[in-house]
Design a protein around this nucleic acid. Structure first.
Length: 830
RNA sequence: GCCGGAAUGGCGGAACUGGUAGACGCGCACGGUUCAGGGCCGUGUAAGAUUUAUCUUGUGGGGGUUCGAUUCCCCCUUCCGGCACCA
């Protein structure tokens, strides 16, 4: 007995029906390795459990779900997991406010957001959920830390670090944007303190080189990473300090412009340079130095170049020139050597400084081209050397080589490569993060925990007052501990790890099916699933998460976990969801809440709209009436299916069919092909959806329009129309899975998930004629109809009969030249 | 300042390697639906002129290559993003 389908589109009923079926049947659960099926790992950046899903999430996950469902239809074994990046500050701030443990707030948010994701109908394998604040997850992170510690890849040092007053913690360089905290936007100070670091700089060269192999990444992201790593090759030189005690003091400088060495007129040194104090001759200037270091600690921002003469001189080994040594606020201590040779004639910054303090300026590079512009100083381009002794006449590039070689030969310098990239500071002075598994013993010093003592869990009885130091530091029961080595008194490390550590390997954890197994993940599973075939997320993580993850994978590889070099094969960075041209935010009052929309229109409508309104890489302008348009289309689509299911009941596949039907089947075939092409990586779903709309419009013309009234549909016609309608349902299924599952069931009585992607069928249709554009001197003048595959002379003949063309070409002899593009265009030159 | 990216109707966008610019949707207008409204269906919708089955202009602006340019090249403007004393 056939269940009569609702005539009207009841999204509530349809969506809850399919969602509960998917959940009950475990439809999207996936095994590690399935024979005869290629694998596809589709991953979206997991959310921080802030409380509710926002439109940015909906867009991100709708894109990912479209890819995952499409790949499943196409016979792939698809891993499409989800989890929660659940350590982090908002939970702790909420804990301070509510005087509870961050775990409660986090748990509630995860439950709510997981329910929202289910209501949106995303096809995740929920069995593989990863929650990073669970000890069963961060335990392995602590293990990685210990292994890295043993290899020297995790180490502690005192340095100037970024400090956010509002978050009460330090930040990595990547997490400071425009001098402000990436999370809260507060301006960042500098603090001198002891911190744990991951030695990402050890991988700088590999991280840079391997970018070239990431063909599936946007150039933009690769460029950002390249700039962030900031490799530069140059020369480091030793300058003797004149008159220093026993002539021992030397200043090492770094330059990328050895060709300008003869133009150096002073040495500029960072106020933090170890020699700074020693070189200064007067007490007043020591005071000045202290003022300068103090100011540099308050703010990274140097609005005005400042400095002073130390009273000491350094000697340029190339020309024995005595150069004054200056302390300068714009010289960074943690890049290069903390001191530079200053060539005001050929460096903008040095020029500015020299002008201000009246230092000598010597030109040593002559422009290759002559012109007023190039006569001006500073001149920073390449050119020919002058005033440079034996190197005169050489061009910059050659001079760099020769001068560097000379320096190496004579032992006054060496070629070096510097990186802008700094080691990743991972210490955070907060509670809600992964504890660093280290103790400080009175006797043994810094001692790592034994692996068997992991996990080191967060204590549940910490107090969240929001005042003073981290809750962990104040908790004596946590801090006071026995040394794992000698059993003596020791104190625990109370810093926790940056939450970007969790997100650096969560995609590996997803591959582990049985979470009871005592491993972070299994090498064979990782080898099967990785690299991620399609990664989707916001571009804001271009140099944070995406760089850290690449680093982490290389470290785990070197720790012997697998042979993988790069985690993410293809990357799609989706644009923001904006309203009235601005990013949605509470302060702007332009937030659109998905819950209300799902209630009003259903998940399929919301998903369809976010995919239809713009291609994924562009920003998406929110538009309420656009959502209604998406809703209207789904209604129309549903009614079409209902009507179709009545009309196409007795479909059967033989005998001749009418030419009009063959024609729309032909059109369908082109759109199936186009969809396949788009789904290979461009992912312009908006064009696929608009094509589907066209197909539905065509279909409606057949079953309700004039065409139907004129023709009686044969069984074979109906067979093709049913194939047509089923194909459209399959094309739309990745975007609007609920209504398509329902539609497929109405039409076929079976599950769409068991159906393969539509094969293109050949109806034997051939286009009989085509429209050809006729141009006169490059301007479109007429559109004529010609037999398909006509040759040029036949088309020209038709064209010359056209009244519009005759107007321009009275006589064939006027034609100078013709260009013919078969079945498309004829261009006549007169 | 340096490095990227973008600019197409009233709006979101389409046009894949140069070949009929404006698909599809929104909005708007008119019409239909025993028509209050809504919904649904149909028609029209780049601009300007007009003798309305006609012509001109038109893809940020200016130049170039080409029979032909939204597409390729050069210059400029605006907007967005990244980096910003990294020597």
């Amino acid at each position: 007995m056939k269940v009569l389908a609702d005539k009207n589109y009841d999204f509530n009923k349809i969506e809850s029906k399919w969602q509960s079926l998917w959940e009950k049947e475990n439809t999207f659960a996936v095994k590690n390795a399935v024979e005869n099926k290629p694998k596809f790992y589709c991953l979206e950046m997991f959310p921080y459990p802030s409380g509710r899903i926002h439109m940015g999430h909906v867009r991100n996950y709708a894109i990912g779900d479209a890819v995952a469902r499409f790949k499943r239809l196409n016979g792939f074994n698809v891993l499409h997991p989800i989890g929660f990046d659940s350590f982090g500050l908002p939970a702790e701030n909420a804990a301070i406010k509510n005087k509870t443990n961050p775990a409660f707030w986090t748990r509630n948010n995860i439950d709510y957001m997981a329910a929202q994701l289910k209501e949106l109908g995303f096809s995740y394998d929920w069995n593989r959920i990863v929650i990073t604040s669970d000890p069963e997850y961060y335990k392995w992170e602590q293990l990685f830390f210990l292994q890295m510690f043993k290899k020297g890849l995790a180490y502690k040092k005192i340095s100037n670090v970024n400090w956010c007053d509002s978050c009460n913690t330090t930040l990595a360089n990547e997490q400071v944007e425009d001098g402000r905290c990436w999370r809260c936007g507060n301006s960042v100070n500098i603090k001198n303190m002891e911190q744990w670091f991951f030695k990402i700089t050890a991988y700088a060269e590999e991280l840079l080189d391997d970018l070239d192999g990431l063909g599936g990444w946007p150039d933009k992201v690769k460029t950002m990473q390249r700039n962030w790593i900031g490799k530069s090759s140059g020369l480091s030189l030793f300058f003797k300090v004149e008159g220093s005690e026993d002539n021992k003091d030397e200043i090492e400088i770094f330059t990328t412009r050895p060709d300008t060495i003869f133009g150096a007129t002073f040495v500029a040194m960072s106020p933090f340079h170890p020699l700074a104090k020693k070189l200064i001759k007067t007490p007043e200037k020591i005071a000045e130095l202290e003022k300068m270091t103090h100011n540099s600690l308050i703010s990274k921002d140097i609005s005005e170049k400042e400095g002073f003469f130390t009273g000491s001189f350094a000697v340029n080994p190339f020309n024995e020139k005595k150069m004054p040594v200056y302390i300068a606020n714009f010289v960074l201590m943690d890049y290069g050597t903390g001191a530079i040779m200053s060539v005001p004639a050929h460096d903008v910054r040095d020029y500015e400084f020299a002008e201000k303090y009246g230092i000598e300026i010597i030109r040593v590079i002559k422009p290759a081209t002559s012109g007023k512009e190039d006569e001006r100083l500073p001149f920073t381009a390449s050119g020919t050397l002058i005033n440079s002794g034996e190197f005169d006449g050489l061009f910059s590039e050659e001079a760099k080589e020769k001068i560097s070689a000379y320096a190496e030969k004579t032992g006054i310098g060496r070629k070096v490569v510097n990186y802008r990239l700094r080691d990743w500071g991972i210490s955070r002075q907060r509670y809600w993060g992964c504890p660093i598994p280290v103790v400080y013993c009175e006797k043994c010093g810094t001692v790592p925990l034994n692996e068997s003592d992991l996990p080191l869990t967060l204590p549940g009885d910490a107090a969240f007052t929001g005042e003073g130091v981290s809750p962990l530091k104040k908790l004596k029961s946590f801090v006071n501990v026995k040394c794992p080595k000698c059993g003596g008194n020791a104190k625990r490390e109370t810093d926790t790890m940056d939450t970007f550590v969790e997100s650096s390997w969560y995609f590996l954890r997803y591959t582990l099916l049985d979470r009871k197994e005592e491993v972070p993940f299994k090498g064979e599973d990782a080898a099967y699933w990785l690299p991620v075939d399609q990664y989707i997320g916001g571009v804001e993580h271009a140099v944070m998460h995406l760089l850290y993850s690449r680093f982490f994978v290389k470290v785990l590889r070197d720790l012997g976990y697998f042979k993988l070099n790069e985690p993410f094969k293809n990357l799609l960075t989706q644009g923001m969801v904006v309203k009235n041209g601005a990013k949605m935010s509470k302060s702007k009052g332009n937030v659109v809440d998905p819950d209300g929309l799902i209630k009003k229109f259903g998940a399929d409508t919301v998903r369809l709209f976010v995919l239809f309104a713009a291609p994924p890489e562009k920003d998406l302008e929110w538009n309420d009436s656009g959502v209604e348009g998406a809703f209207r289309f789904i209604n129309r689509f549903y009614r079409t299916v209902i009507a179709g299911s009545e009309i196409l009941k007795d479909a059967d596949g033989d005998a001749d069919t009418n030419q009009n039907i063959k024609e729309i089947i032909y059109k369908l075939s082109r759109i199936i092909e186009k969809t396949e092409t788009e789904m290979e990586g461009r992912y312009h779903f908006n064009t696929i959806i608009s094509s589907s709309m066209e197909l539905i419009n065509e279909f409606n013309d057949f079953i309700t329009g004039e065409a139907r009234k004129e023709t009686v549909l044969s069984k074979a016609d109906k067979y093709l129309l049913k194939y047509f309608l089923n194909s459209v349902i399959l094309i739309l299924y990745p975007f609007t899975p609920h209504v398509c599952s329902e539609a497929f069931e109405i039409l076929n009585g079976s599950l769409i998930e068991n159906e393969p992607w539509p094969e293109i069928i050949d109806t034997g249709y051939v286009r009989e004629n085509c429209n050809i554009a006729v141009q006169i001197n490059g301007k479109m003048r007429d559109l004529i109809v010609a037999d398909i595959n006509s040759d040029e002379s036949a088309v020209l003949k038709i064209a010359l009969e056209s009244a519009k063309i005759k107007k321009y070409v009275e006589d064939k002899s006027l034609i100078k030249k013709t260009i013919y593009v078969k079945n498309k265009l004829l261009s006549i030159i007169i």
